[in-house]
Design a protein around this nucleic acid. Sequence first.
RNA 1: GGGCGCGUAGCUCAAUUGGCAGAGCAAGGGACUCUUAAUCCCUAGGUUCGGGGUUCGAUUCCCCGCGCGCUCACCA
Length: 499
Amino acid sequence: MSEGERATRRARLEALREKGIDPYPARVGPREAIAVVRSRFGEQSAEALEVDPQTVAVVGRIVAVRSFGKLVFVRLLEAGETIQVSVRRQEIDAELFDWIRSFDVGDFVRIEGPVWRTRTGELTVDAKAAQILAKSLRPLPEKWHGLTDVESRFRQRYLDLLSNEQARRIAVLRSRTLSAMRAFLDARGFLEVETPVLQPIYGGAAARPFDTHHRRYDQKLYLRISDELYLKRLVVGGLDRVYEIGHNFRNEGISRKHNPEFTMMECYQADADYRDMMDLSEEMIREIAERVCGTTRIEYQGTTLDFGAPWRRVPMRDAIRDATGIDVLEHGDLEALSGAMRGRGLEPSDAPTWARLVDDLFSDRVEPDLVQPTLVSDYPLDLSPLAKRSVEDARLVERFEPFVAGMEIGNAFSELNDPDDQRARLEQQRRALAAGDEEAHPLDEDYVMALEHGLPPTGGLGIGVDRLVMILADVPNLREVILFPHLRPIAPDGAPEEP
RNA sequence: GGGCGCGUAGCUCAAUUGGCAGAGCAAGGGACUCUUAAUCCCUAGGUUCGGGGUUCGAUUCCCCGCGCGCUCACCA
């Protein structure tokens, strides 16, 4: 950066201190929100304001200065709203004029004075008094192009938020999505709870965990990959509608759709099954879309996604058969299915089991085309060690996942509540883990014990909040909706270099 | 992790075959009482991501490293 500009601002800061003015005062004088001032005077004509002058005080960050010598226009930004300030040499004494002129773009100030309208009709506060609220020592990004460098936008998100309308819009939209989600669940009697992020045994999903260590207890701990097992313990305990919105941590690759730390909503409802959760997920996302976007028809990357209509529901078997002509249940083992795929000119992946091959086939041939909201159900049992067996086919489980825009945005099932079946399934996972499958589930004896006390029939649903926000915000990259996405440190010690 | 691409002033971007590193905005000085990216004149601002190599000479070509993007793999 230009030392000149930093030095200039620094010098002005020192000048303030020498004059006994705190550049970062603890108290702000009385003021009104810019939005309030704008709406209060929005209807009043220039003449009305001239006849009956009203004095207001506003605060904000200076985002532009246009000087005409003895007349200066300054634009203040506060809470996404701006207002113009005029400083007129003729109206105030030289000392105050110079004082206000010494403010830099980026400074936070308080301005007090009567409201008037310029010749172009712009509502303007004519400065009669001014207070510095916080001195800015570094320049803001360029006013017209804003900040476009992707890396800088993520590393210095505050600058992105300041200079790019889109960034602010997404941040607000995300917050509203969370509010709408909570409102939906609260209204249905779900209790918001908090469960451990630091877990002695991770579980509830297939993923590699981050691990850490508790010094005092000399205990190995994992950052949760899911809150599932704790939430179901709460249902055992009689909290029969619970949800949690929190971060999960998965030690996996980073992509457009993956961040190592992401936000998941999980809810559990006693006396419900996966069909009930299908209804719940449809209604939830429909209501969120309505509340956040004002419509259930969402434009996403040039396609209109219709969350209003009943979502398409399709068993995984049918979806794969429709896409490939292969009935995975008629080719019920690895060799048979591999053979059937080759017969259709498809190269089977090197999946180790039938279930994995089904999953790969689905991911490759079906998932990308699931653009309109779709609930895909009845997954292979081996992929779902926490889901209840399907009553129709013992190879399947009562599970579904919602897909939108070719992207999985959730996961749900009739929760497995048979402790013996659960133990057996987790034993199998443990063997896979021991055999080198790093995403297999460990066996959580304490969880199985909880099931032995009795988990009622329960439906569970998880929604990937970041991905949902991607859809609602119409952005193709998860990092746009995560305020501080994971990035490598810029310097070896993790501290940004002093520019 | 692989492949491809990118990295130049605070920001947005130029720079001919390898030949003095430039512009706009922002900043500093000056003019200007109605601007909305104000305008006009002047000034200053650079480890061209870092290191090495080739060369009389490297922003440019080569190698290594770092960071970012896209993509594939992995992964929900």
